[in-house]
Design a protein around this nucleic acid. Structure first.
Length: 920
RNA sequence: GCAGAAAUGGUGGAAUGGUAGACACGAAGGACUUAAAAUCCUUUGGCCUUUACCGGCUGUGUGGGUUCGAGUCCCACUUUCUGUACCA
């Protein structure tokens, strides 16, 4: 019989479906393993061959773990809220839900063809009310909690209210937007509206007026991770800074815990580093500078307290609250002109145009250590959002301050011995201090590190400021002025936000007649009829951002149909957290931060048992497209083969890769492709073939380089696709898709099929050679799966099948073992073999075999080598042989080979399990 | 600028500090065929030697170092990719 992948794959996919082979339940007493893929956003373009790469890897791992006896949770779902569906709805008027459902159906069809072991009974969709009620529920919990720094966890807001009514702010150490101080009497005297305003400053989900990334084209605000290089990640539209009142999540309260938690997870070093940078912890000091002829004190943050004697001016961010206070009357006009200029620059312009600019306020600060007067300037190189929005400038030892000082001709005082600051600043934190002696403090002669510590101590003792840790991580902006997202269970009374009762959950997304903002500029929900509470109070018009729904989906998979809780106690205590998470590294500063935050918050409240959601994480690389080019001679319809293109004046043109095979163009198909190429002429290579050029680019329709997995499955089968994607290279590496090599993998499966047919009925015992080949394979594949090195395991299968095929006789037992280890990689063909071997049930539960080291022992190999003019005799030692024994054998062997020639060896090097060298 | 990763044949890529280039693609030659496809066999880093067998030299971005032994470890440099950036 021939290997018929279509028939086999259809049959077993149906069998798995009929028998609910992949359905998983909580089984107390059985060890669990949770394997998760980052769920996809179902785009209209469907899946291309790059998407399943990570799913295949995680599927192999899941099946392997299941064969080892683990109860494996391996779910899949859809991140269904997102901008593209809404943009499409705006253009077509079609409800995004319709588009989204159609896309999901298409994704499901494509995924099913690849033979994944997903438990689809646990599917979640972020846009499903039964799912998003728990997203809304989590928001309500965040609204009703505050972060207690003293206890290092979230606590109910009711406890804070009680504390305020008894003691005021005394003894409260909370993560807040701005520090507040009031007594119990003052609190009790406040009206409800005022009290709620105060509490807003403490809530973990709060409304705050902040500088936000506003994208006019998308009509919405964006989180920091949704903006890159001044444009929106989705769509690439310009983004500007705008002061707006928005819902925010107090992620910054968890900065230190998010940082510390990274030590407890097995993630790649680069990903952890990206998160550490994003959190951006910096230790320094917050210091107050007095202002001349004024009571105002200017607070600044610095990591270089040691450079205080070199401060020659101060700089405020243009948005700083100090600006109006410190602008002297005679400078008013100049300052306003400057502020105006800065305001009209978008973030992108600010980044591109890095000209030094600024204006003098007319005020002077007093250096607290020297008593000297120093001018206060305003410049946009100081950011309002970091630290206090004001800095002390040390031009000699900070390149930005240096550029500013040179431009405005301000003094530069070098503070480090030997530092030449005539051309540029000396930024390194090393060297000995000079010029650093004041009335109370002498730093001269100290190393920079000592000087920093010394100065910090000094300013704390003298009450000039305090030691402070700053984080770059900002609170997440949580509202979007869009339609296609989770509505907030929030209404407004007297302009103050109140939570709706939990009984309204899920608060369903209402219908609207159009997905555009209203004529008054309100978000699309402003068009929804009856979008008010029963009492007639208006409901929040913004919706939640994309990351809301994806922040806790891994928890919901554990208990997806529970209508009492996000996840029930029993399910959570059994499944705990994700043992293996597979997905792209592009989520490092978005999803992977937000869901860790979300999880830690729920952990504080006692709803989840693990502090870190993803114990181990593997980043799969991106699969890029491989575009092909033809070369047209300018102003003609003649195309030149790649090798001869330089002999003419040609323009490269992308050609559909379906017309190309191994870079050879099907010229007839090319003529039929587009009417304008119908009478195309070709300049060919000597062998009469037209060779195309190629380039590695993003896989996209417009580049004609998209490869659809359905086509591959149709032609070669799912097992071939799975093996080939793994064979392409290391899973973490980005690489171009190249269909050219797929024949090799398909050939392997056919050889395997033939081998099986030959061995199926052979009841003889395994020969020594068979044992060696098969056990070598088991050992290799087991180690490779643990290391996520799937490309080398595919190679190992090929070697084993080649070795076995070359033998005169192959026993049934050999192919039985082969089937067990092949099952995670090529489940369809393995299932076929499994049943033909007479097994009941499914190969998914076939026990993972152990290998026997005894079968792998090699004969001692010997080979003489010469090196560096000295001759050496080398033999390979068996792995388990004792050192003396190996040395004795080696010497005897060398002697027998007449190699020693009666001489005494100068040196004998024995490395157990390695190689023995005898040096003369 | 900073951080991380990487650099091996025509290509994708293998190699716990121990025979570099596994496995596969491509290419070349051959078998089968009227022919093509498919399949099978042989060769395939470079240079040299030999009728052939056998052999030799060289070779993992560059320059040093550690080691009996380095693609692998250390130092410096070059290039590429990824992330991030007036973060004080």
């Amino acid at each position: 019989m021939e290997y018929n992948h279509k028939e086999i794959e259809q049959r077993w996919q149906q069998y798995w479906k009929d028998n609910e082979t992949y359905k998983t339940e909580v089984e107390p007493g059985r060890k669990k393993f949770y394997v998760l893929d980052m769920f996809p956003y179902p785009s209209g373009a469907g899946l291309h061959v790059g998407h399943p790469l990570g799913y295949i890897a995680s599927d192999i791992y899941s099946r392997y773990k299941r064969q080892q006896g683990f109860n494996v949770l391996h779910p899949m779902g859809y991140d269904a809220y997102g901008l593209p569906a809404e943009q499409y709805a705006i253009q077509t008027g079609q409800h995004p839900e319709i588009t989204t459902n159609a896309n999901i159906a298409r994704y499901r069809e494509q995924l099913d063809k690849i033979g994944f072991s997903f438990d689809w009974s646990r599917e979640v969709r972020t846009c499903d009310p039964e799912y998003y009620r728990w997203t809304q529920w989590a928001f309500m919990q965040m609204f009703n909690h505050w972060y207690d720094r003293a206890e290092g966890k979230a606590r109910p807001i009711a406890e804070l209210v009680e504390h305020f009514s008894k003691y005021g702010t005394e003894g409260v150490n909370a993560a807040t937007g701005k520090d507040m101080e009031f007594t119990a009497d003052e609190w009790n005297a406040m009206d409800e509206r005022r009290q709620r305003e105060v509490l807003m400053n403490y809530r973990i989900a709060y409304q705050g007026e902040t500088m936000v990334n506003w994208c006019p084209q998308l009509g919405t605000v964006l989180a920091n991770d949704e903006v890159s290089e001044g444009v929106s990640v989705r769509g690439g539209f310009p983004v500007e800074q705008k002061l707006m009142t928005q819902w925010c999540l107090r992620v910054s309260a968890y900065a230190q815990r998010l940082l510390d938690g990274l030590d407890d997870v097995q993630w790649s070093e680069s990903l952890k580093e990206t998160q550490r940078n994003w959190i951006g912890r910096s230790e320094g000091a917050e210091m107050r500078f007095g202002v001349a002829d004024s009571d105002i004190e200017l607070e600044i943050f610095t990591t270089r307290a040691d450079t205080i004697f070199g401060v020659t001016f101060m700089v405020l961010a243009p948005e700083s609250a100090y600006v109006p206070m410190l602008t002297a009357p005679e400078q008013k006009e100049a300052v306003e002109a400057y502020l105006n200029e800065v305001k009209h620059k978008t973030e992108r312009e600010r980044q591109i145009d890095r000209k030094v600019s600024g204006v003098f306020t007319g005020s002077y600060a007093i250096n607290p250590l020297t008593g000297k007067k120093i001018p206060i300037w305003i410049s946009d190189y100081v950011l309002a959002g970091y630290g206090t929005g004001a800095i002390m400038a040390v031009p000699a030892h900070d390149s930005r301050d240096y550029a500013f000082a040179r431009h405005f001709n301000l003094p530069v005082i070098p503070l480090i011995e030997g530092a030449d600051v005539s051309e540029e600043s000396f930024d390194a934190k090393e060297g000995r201090m000079i010029n650093s002696c004041g009335p109370d403090l002498d730093l001269n002669g100290l190393e920079v590190k000592e000087a920093i510590a010394r100065t910090k101590r000094h300013i704390e003792e003298k009450g000039l400021g305090k030691v402070k840790v700053n984080y770059r991580l900002r609170d997440a902006i949580f509202s979007r002025q869009r339609y296609w997202g989770e509505p907030f269970p929030v209404y407004y009374k007297d302009g103050v936000a109140y939570l709706m009762d939990e009984s309204v959950l899920p608060l369903r997304l209402p219908e609207v007649d159009s997905y555009l903002p209203t004529s008054t500029g309100e978000p699309p929900l402003g068009r929804a009829k009856g979008w008010v509470t029963p009492e007639g109070y208006p409901i929040e018009l913004c919706t939640m951002p994309g990351f809301a729904g994806s922040s806790a989906y891994y928890l919901r998979y554990m208990d997806p149909r529970n209508d009492k809780a996000l996840v029930g106690k029993e399910a959570d205590e059994y499944w705990r957290n994700v043992d293996l998470y597979v997905g792209g590294a592009e989520h490092a500063t978005g999803h992977l931060i937000y869901s860790r935050f979300w999880n830690k918050f729920l952990y504080d409240l006692g709803y989840v048992v693990e502090a870190e959601p993803f114990a181990k994480l593997v980043n799969q690389g991106m699969i890029q497209g491989r575009s092909n080019f033809v070369y047209r001679i300018k102003d003609t319809n003649t195309f030149v083969t790649y090798g001869k293109r330089k002999e003419y004046d040609t323009t490269p043109i992308r050609v559909d890769i379906n017309l190309v095979n191994n870079d050879i163009l099907d010229t007839e198909a090319f003529r039929r492709w587009r009417p304008e190429y119908a009478d195309a002429e070709f300049v060919l290579d000597a062998d009469g073939k037209y060779r195309c050029g190629y380039a590695v680019e993003k896989m996209s329709k417009s580049m004609f380089n998209v490869v659809n997995p359905d086509d591959i499955v149709e032609r070669y089968g799912a097992d071939t696709l799975r093996l080939y994607e793994m064979f392409l290279g290391p899973i973490e590496q980005s690489k171009p898709w190249d269909t050219n090599g797929i024949d090799g993998v398909h050939r392997f499966l056919r050889k395997l099929w033939n081998l099986f047919e030959r061995a199926e009925k052979n009841d003889t015992e395994m020969s020594r050679e068979e044992k060696k080949s098969v056990h070598k394979l088991i050992k290799k594949v087991t180690a490779d799966i643990e290391n996520f090195s799937f490309n080398t395991s595919v190679a190992a299968f090929m070697i084993a099948v080649n070795e076995l095929s070359a033998l005169k006789s192959v026993s049934r037992e050999s192919v039985e073992l082969l089937t067990r280890v092949l099952a995670p990689f090529a489940p369809h063909i393995a299932e076929e073999f499994w049943h033909r071997l007479g097994h009941e049930g499914t190969v998914v539960d076939a026990q993972w075999p152990e290998w026997n080291e005894d079968y792998l022992k090699e004969d001692i190999k010997k080979y003489p080598v010469s090196f560096n003019g000295k001759t050496r005799y080398t033999i390979e030692a068996p792995a388990d042989a004792p050192r003396e024994e190996v040395e004795r054998i080696a010497l005897a062997d060398a002697n027998a080979a007449k190699w020693l020639d009666g001489k005494t060896p100068r040196k004998v090097i024995v490395v157990p399990g390695k190689i023995v060298n005898i040096v003369l």
